[in-house]
Amino acid sequence: MTKQIEWEGISLVLLAEKVLYIPAYHTVVLSDWHLGKLGHFRQEGFFVPPMQLQEEFDRLTRILQRLQVQQVVFLGDLFHSTWNREWDEFLMYLQQFKEMAFILTKGNHDILSEAVLHQAPLQVVDYLALGDRIILSHEPWPDIPAHILNIVGHLHPGIQIQGRGRQVFRLPCFVLQDNVFILPAFGRWTGLQIQKDRGASRLFAIVGNGVIAMF
């Protein structure tokens, strides 16, 4: 299930897979995948299981197959650390989508060398503009004009819900605060930053296979 919202006439489709789709631009947006994170920990001697990369790739493939997609934008922190074999497997995965453009707006964890990045079928930028009313970036821009929607990642937003008794549920969520729209982390090993001071924010929690407006 998806949740469609409007921001100043711009349609945004929120997917339960923690992905945003912008129909007007045939664009899929995801953030903070942190590929290579478990491989990095294993290289450092930590006892963690290997990342099931094919399962990760299949998650994205299912999205790309069911939507009309011309480009995919990774909002930073695509790869967690320096090179390991998981980067090469990611590049092989991208080869099957030659008809699509892949764009990375660099994040604080995107520390692969320029030489390595330039070998990838990726356009690497600091930010990406869609028309004159949408800016995509890893972190929020300071003092962005109110008529521009800034779509960002980085924060790994989540919401905590108190259930019956002492049950507590922590769920990833999308956050719309004024003209800043924050995506949940696409990666599975990222943790959550619980949104406590909600103010005038609108929160959309991912509950199972659906997206539900909470506030």
Rank of each mutant, 00 (worst) to 15 (best):
Q4P: 01
Q4W: 01
E6Q: 15
L12D: 03
V19M: 10
V19G: 08
I22A: 02
I22Q: 01
A24R: 14
T27S: 07
V28A: 07
S31C: 06
S31R: 08
L35M: 10
K37N: 02
L38S: 02
L38M: 06
F41W: 07
R42C: 01
Q43K: 12
Q43Y: 09
P49E: 12
P49G: 11
M51H: 12
L53Y: 07
Q54W: 09
E55S: 15
I63W: 04
L64N: 03
L67E: 03
L67V: 00
Q68E: 14
L75C: 04
H80T: 00
H80L: 06
E86F: 06
E99S: 14
E99H: 15
L104G: 08
S113G: 06
V116E: 11
Q119N: 11
P121L: 01
L122V: 03
V125C: 04
Y127H: 09
L128I: 08
L136W: 05
D143R: 15
D143T: 10
I144R: 13
I144P: 10
I148P: 02
L149P: 02
N150I: 09
I151D: 10
V152W: 15
H156K: 04
P157G: 05
Q167H: 05
D178P: 14
N179C: 03
A185Q: 07
R188Y: 11
Q193W: 10
Q193K: 12
I194C: 10
R198F: 09
R202N: 10
L203V: 06
